[in-house]
Design a protein around this nucleic acid. Sequence first.
DNA 1: GTAAGTGCAAACGTTTTGCAATGAA
DNA 2: TTCATTGCAAAACGTTTGCACTTAC
Lengths: 162, 162
Amino acid sequence: MSSHSPEGPDGVDPADLDAARAALSRFMAQRGLKSTRQRDRIVDTFLSQEGYLNVEELLERVRRQDARISSATVYRTMKLLAECGLASARRFDDGQTRYEPQVGRHHHDHLICTACTRIIEFEDEEIEALQEQAAARHQFRVTHHKLELYGLCADCQQRGRT
Amino acid sequence: MSSHSPEGPDGVDPADLDAARAALSRFMAQRGLKSTRQRDRIVDTFLSQEGYLNVEELLERVRRQDARISSATVYRTMKLLAECGLASARRFDDGQTRYEPQVGRHHHDHLICTACTRIIEFEDEEIEALQEQAAARHQFRVTHHKLELYGLCADCQQRGRT
DNA sequence: GTAAGTGCAAACGTTTTGCAATGAA
DNA sequence: TTCATTGCAAAACGTTTGCACTTAC
């Protein structure tokens, strides 16, 4: 279950990680894409971490290992990962795109602390079911959805932040 | 109920509109802000319309009445309206901010058709209640939220679009 | 050898801002 | 008279792209 506890320290299930890398290899082979030093560094850094990262943060981490990787390459690689389903891209309320590894994960929704920007994930089957019902009332067929709850996390409430 | 049917032709309840303008006056007086020709045009144009508008669209409509209004002024005015609660700002999946008048309206969520970009609004008390419960499980205090269901509207399903 | 990938810098689209001129109170 | 507001153009922001060079296959 390690890959399902987004708030813990890094600890992605190695089996999930291998599966992800294999899936990526297949995807790249199929499209005639090449594996490169930069790509591998970015993918590894990204996948072995949990929760959302923006490109700036990811670039910073990647550059600790290889100072000469450019942000253009990170952007390009993240697009690739998003396309093949290994990363999910999100824009919360600030203007940036954030990516989250999608390795052996269920769909989940988000609690976003407006004081410390922490993002907590949760799942709720019952809400999902009601969403389908609400959509059906409008003859709407849902393909995907986003539920974001903004407010204060426990810590920030305790510290009296706003 | 006219102000609750976002898909109909323009038809905002005049009483709601007056209330909104009064609220804005109060807000501006309190902050020492001045009323100007440009501000009034933008506010009137914006408030007497329903559904989401991006700045470009709003600017276009405003310029039909006064060709010399700049986009900077529209941006500035919309920030103001968002601050005082008369407009709600949203970023859906493209990069732009859209504003929706908030005059005598309840909170509501969105069904977004990915084929024709139509936005249908809905409300669901039961979902709201479950959201609170889910948040409470994480000791999280919700201030506001977003629920967006993406997929195909009835029309686009019928036309076999994707 | 060939095509894909890289880094750089320039371009992009949206939004914000500095500034001198204008206008509301 | 004073200070907020305006329009303009320039800057800022996150992201994308054209290009010459490098690298994987």
